[in-house]
Design a protein around this nucleic acid. Structure first.
Lengths: 207, 207
DNA sequence: ATGTCAAGTGACAGTAACTCTCAAAAGGTG
DNA sequence: CACCTTTTGAGAGTTACTGTCACTTGACAT
C-alpha cells in the first residue's frame, strides 16, 4: 500500500494533469472490465450496465467514453500509425509497395506492443456479427486515409476508382490474413500470413 | 374491374395459394412503405412503428418479415443467382475468370430486372453507416459461398487462405465499383466500371 | 357448406442500447 | 480559500428488438 500518487500537487509527473490521468484510468477500467466479462459470458450476454458496475462507474460514463458498446472493443489508434509508416516510405518505392511495407510495419509495431489485446479483439471480431459489421466500417475509414496517401503519391484524384480498388484489395487481404490467423488459434506467424496474402494480389490473383 | 380472383377455389392461378400471395403482398407493402419513408425523411429518422403504420400492418408483423430494420433494405436473393452463374461457367475456364464472368452475369441480370431497387438500395447503403456495416456482413456470406465454389474448382480446401484472398479481392473490387457508381450519380455504365476494377486486380494492383 | 387444423396477425409486456438534461462532485487556477 | 470548468451520476425518454398469447383467416377433408 505504498503511496503511488503522493501529495505534491505542483507538477503532475508525466506531463499530464490528474484529470487526464484519471480519464485514461477510467477508460482502461471500462475496457478491461468489458473484455473480462465478454470472455466469461460472451459479448451479447453482457449488458453495458453490467460493464459499468464491474468498472465501478455509471452507465452514463461508459457511453461517454465509448459511444457504442461495439466501440469498447473496436476503438483503436492504428490509423495514424499506419499513415505515418506509409508516408515514411521512400518516394522512389512504388506506391503499392509503399503501402505494403507501411502497413506491415504498423502491424508489426502493434504485434510487438499490443499482442494480447490484438488477440482478444480479433477473436471477438471474428465471432460476433455485430462487431464484424462495425469493424468493416472502421476499415472503410482506414481506406479513406490510405486512398489519400496513395492519391498524393500517384497524382491521381482521391476518389480515383483504381486507387480505391488497390486499397480495398490490400486491406481486404490483410483482414483475411487476420481471420485465418485466429481460425488457426493465432499460432502461425501473422506477418508471414500477410505476406502470403499480398503475394496473391501481386500475382494478379493467380492461384 | 373484371374479377381477377374469382370463386374457383380449386387451383390458385399462379400455383400459389392465397396465403402465399398475401405474404408476398405484405412483404412488398412493408418494403415499399419503408423505401418511401426513407426517401422522404431518412433512414434513421424513420421508426419501424411508422413503417408498420404506413404499410398498414402491426409492428410485430414487420419484425416477423424482416428480423431487423436493416433487413428491410438489405434482404436479397442475389447469392443463389451468383452461385448458379459461376457454377455454369465452363470447367476449362480459370477459376478467377469463372468468378469474374459469373459475378458479372449475375449483376447484369439484376441490372436488367431490378435496376430501380438496386439504385435505391445502393444509395442507402452508401449513405447510412448502419447499413454499410450490415451490408459488409452480407458480403461476407457471399464470400463464404464463393469460396466454396472456388475451392471445388481448384481442389483446395474451403478455408484456404489464398482462395479467401481471391474472393475478398473480387468482391471488394465490385463493391468499390458500385460505390463509385452511386458517387457519380449512377450515370456511368456499371458493368464497365466493374471491368475496370477487376482489371486492376488482374494486373497485380499496378496503377 | 362446414368443421377442424395450421399459419399469420396484432396487442402487450419486457429488455437493452442508446440520448438528453440537470444537478452534484472534483480538478485546476489565481 | 474561492471561483470556474470539466467530469460524473441519476433519471427520464426513445427505439430496436424479443417473446407470449389470444384471435383471425386461409387450407383442406368431409
Amino acid at each position: 500500500m505504498a503511496s503511488a500518487q503522493t501529495s505534491s500537487p505542483a507538477h503532475p509527473g508525466p506531463g499530464l494533469g490528474l484529470r487526464e490521468r484519471k480519464k485514461i484510468q477510467t477508460r482502461q477500467a471500462i475496457r478491461r472490465a468489458a473484455y473480462r466479462l465478454f470472455e466469461k459470458q460472451g459479448y451479447d450476454a453482457t449488458p453495458v450496465d453490467q460493464i459499468a458496475e464491474a468498472a465501478d462507474v455509471s452507465p452514463s460514463t461508459v457511453f461517454r467514453y465509448f459511444p457504442t458498446k461495439e466501440d469498447i472493443v473496436l476503438t483503436d489508434e492504428y490509423d495514424p500509425v499506419m499513415e505515418a509508416a506509409v508516408r515514411a516510405r521512400p518516394a522512389e518505392e512504388s506506391p503499392v509497395e509503399a503501402i505494403r511495407h507501411g502497413v506491415r510495419e504498423a502491424l508489426q509495431h502493434i504485434i510487438d506492443t499490443d499482442i494480447v489485446e490484438l488477440r482478444q479483439r480479433t477473436k471477438l471480431v471474428r465471432e460476433v456479427p455485430a462487431l464484424r459489421g462495425r469493424s468493416a466500417e472502421g476499415q472503410a475509414e482506414s481506406a479513406v486515409m490510405l486512398c489519400g496517401v496513395l492519391a498524393e503519391r500517384t497524382g491521381r484524384p482521391e476518389d480515383d476508382l483504381e486507387v480505391r480498388v488497390v486499397i480495398a484489395a490490400v486491406l481486404g487481404a490483410m483482414q483475411e490474413a487476420m481471420m485465418h490467423w485466429v481460425d488457426r488459434g493465432q499460432t502461425e506467424d501473422l506477418a508471414g500470413l500477410i505476406d502470403r496474402t499480398l503475394d496473391v494480389l501481386g500475382r494478379g490473383l493467380t492461384l
